[in-house]
Design a protein around this nucleic acid. Structure first.
Lengths: 272, 272
DNA sequence: TAGTATTGCGTCAAATGTACGCACACAAAA
DNA sequence: TTTTGTGTGCGTACATTTGACGCAATACTA
C-alpha cells in the first residue's frame, strides 16, 4: 500500500491502484459497511462520505485483509474514518442480495459520474471480475461526536455528519442499512446500557437522558430515568460542573467500564 | 456441476473436482454454516455431518453462487441437507476470525485423516489459495424432525441428528457456532412465537409446551402457557385426536401462518 | 432572601408475570 | 352407572415491574 505515490497520479490511476491493491491484499467478495452514529445538539447523526467528483453519498466501508480478523477490519476502518479507537462496534446484519453492490452497479455509478474510461476499464478485465459482487457485513458504531475527525478516503471527497432524519438518497442499499442499524440500536438500548459511547467522557444526567430520548424517539420521565440508570450501577458521579452561570450546577457522570463488563457477565444480557 | 461423473472417481478426485467447481461458480472467501435444530422425544437436536473416512463431525455448510442471493444459498443448502423447503431460517452471526476455517486447517485435517496426497495438493497451488480463508455467515434453522431425510454431501459419509447436549468436539469453530445459535434461539423464543417450526404440522398443546421447556431449559406452568399462546392468536384448534388409548384425547393445533405474518407486521416484534 | 434549576426519594395505580385452585369434558376401566 | 385419569379452560390471588407524578432538599445567583 504505497500511499505516498498517490499525489502524482490522477484519480483514475488512483482508483486502479486501489483496486489492484485490494485484489491482492484483501479478501475478495467480502466487504464491510459502517453505520457510525454520533450525537450532537439533541440530534442523532450518522457519518457519510461523498463520492469523488459527485453529489452521491454513501456509508463508509472497508475490506478485510487476507490475514486480518473480520472485527479487526471493522475497527481499522472505523479508525481510518474517525481517528478513534476502542469504541462500541457491533455487527448487526450481513447483506448478500444480488441487487446490492456489484461491479455492474459500480460501472453504472462511474459512468454517471462521467468517468467513462474508468468504467469501461472496470469491465474489460477477466469475466470473473465482471460478475463479481460482494457480501457485506454491516457494523454499527457509537462514537463521541466531539472526538471525531471525519476523514474521507481515496474514493471520496468529503466526510461529514448528517442528521439521521435528513440522510439523502444513498448509493446502493445503504439507506436500508441505516434503517436496520437504527432498529438494532433501539432494541439493544432498551436491554443494556450502551448509550454512553455517544457522549463525551463526562456528561450530565440530562444530557444522557436527551440522548436516550433522541434514539428511542420518545420522551422519558426524568426521575424514573435517573433511578433506572443508577440501578445499573455503571455510572460514577464526579464533581459538579462549574460552568453554568445561574442556579445549581448539575453533577457530571462518567461511565465505568469495569462494572459494565461485570454486568454483562453476571446477567444474561445479550452481547449480540 | 457434473455430479454424474463422481461415481467413477476416487475421493481425492471428487474433492479436487468439487474444489474446482467451487472456485469457478461460487463466491470466494464467503461460506455459510447451518445450525439446524430439530426436536424429538423431548430432546432438542442438531443435524451434524461426519467427514468422509473419519470420526470428525461438523456443521452442514455451503457456499454462495456467483449469481445467488445469500439467503437463497442458505435455503438451498438447507434443502440439500434435509430435503425440506420454506422453513424458519435466520442468520445469527458472521464469523470472520483468522483462527477459523482456513486452507491450512483443512490441510491439517486432511493430513490427520491420512489423506496426505490430497493435503499436499491443496497447498501446492498458487499462493493465493494457500492463504485463502473464509468469512462464514451463520444461519440457524428450525425444522420438523419427522419430515427430515438427513443427507450427507460429497465430503461426508454420514448425516444424522445429535442431542444438543451430547454434541461431540466438532471441527473448526463449530461448537461455538452452536452455542451462539442456541443463545439467539432462546432469546428470540421469548419475544415471538417461532417454535412451531420444530413440530409436525399438527401437535398438542403439551407437545408444544415440552418443546418450549426444552429450549428454554426450565419448566412452565401449563395454564399460563396455554393462555399466553392462545393470546397470540396464531394457533388453530383442530378436531380431537382419537388415537390415544386411555382417557380424554387432547386437541390438536395447527400453526396459522397468515395470522403470524399479520402479527409480525402490527407489533414491533423484531425479525432480525 | 427570593428565585431557579438540579437532585434524590417516595408514593400510587396500571400492567404484567407467576402460582395455583377448580369446574368441566371426555374416554376407558370398574 | 360410577370411578378414574387426563386434558381443557377460566378465574383468582399475589408479587414484580413500569409509568406518572408530588415534593423536599440542595446549591447557586441575583
Amino acid at each position: 500500500m504505497t500511499h505516498k505515490l498517490f499525489f502524482v497520479m490522477n484519480f483514475s490511476e488512483v482508483v486502479q491502484r486501489w483496486v489492484d491493491d485490494h485484489l491482492v491484499n484483501f479478501l475478495p467478495s467480502v466487504s464491510l459497511d459502517l453505520v457510525i452514529f454520533g450525537f450532537h445538539e439533541g440530534q442523532l447523526k450518522v457519518l457519510l462520505l461523498r463520492f469523488k467528483e459527485s453529489e452521491d453519498w454513501l456509508l463508509p466501508g472497508g475490506r478485510v485483509g487476507n490475514r486480518e480478523n473480520l472485527d479487526d477490519a471493522a475497527y481499522r476502518s472505523l479508525r481510518e474514518r474517525t481517528g478513534l479507537d476502542r469504541l462500541f462496534l457491533q455487527q448487526f446484519h450481513t447483506f448478500g442480495n444480488l441487487n446490492r453492490l456489484t461491479y455492474f452497479s459500480w460501472h453504472e455509478t462511474l459512468s454517471r459520474l462521467g468517468m467513462k474510461e474508468m468504467a469501461a476499464r472496470l469491465l474489460e478485465g477477466d469475466s470473473a471480475l465482471k460478475n463479481h459482487r460482494d457480501v457485506s457485513v454491516g457494523f454499527y458504531a457509537l462514537v463521541d461526536y466531539t472526538q471525531v475527525s471525519p476523514t474521507p478516503d481515496l474514493l471520496t471527497d468529503e466526510c461529514r455528519w448528517w442528521d439521521i432524519d435528513q440522510v439523502p438518497q444513498l448509493l446502493f442499499d445503504h439507506n436500508a442499512m441505516i434503517r436496520m442499524a437504527l432498529k438494532t440500536l433501539r432494541r439493544q438500548l432498551s436491554y443494556q446500557p450502551i448509550g454512553y459511547n455517544l457522549l463525551p467522557d463526562s456528561f450530565t444526567m440530562s444530557e444522557l437522558q436527551r440522548l436516550y430520548e433522541t434514539i428511542l424517539g420518545r420522551s422519558l420521565d426524568r426521575r424514573n430515568f435517573y433511578k433506572q440508570l443508577m440501578n445499573y450501577n455503571v455510572l460514577d458521579r464526579l464533581d459538579k460542573r462549574p460552568t453554568i452561570p445561574s442556579s445549581k450546577a448539575p453533577y457530571l457522570y462518567r461511565f465505568n467500564r469495569e462494572r459494565y463488563e461485570q454486568l454483562l457477565d453476571s446477567e444474561d444480557f445479550w452481547i449480540g
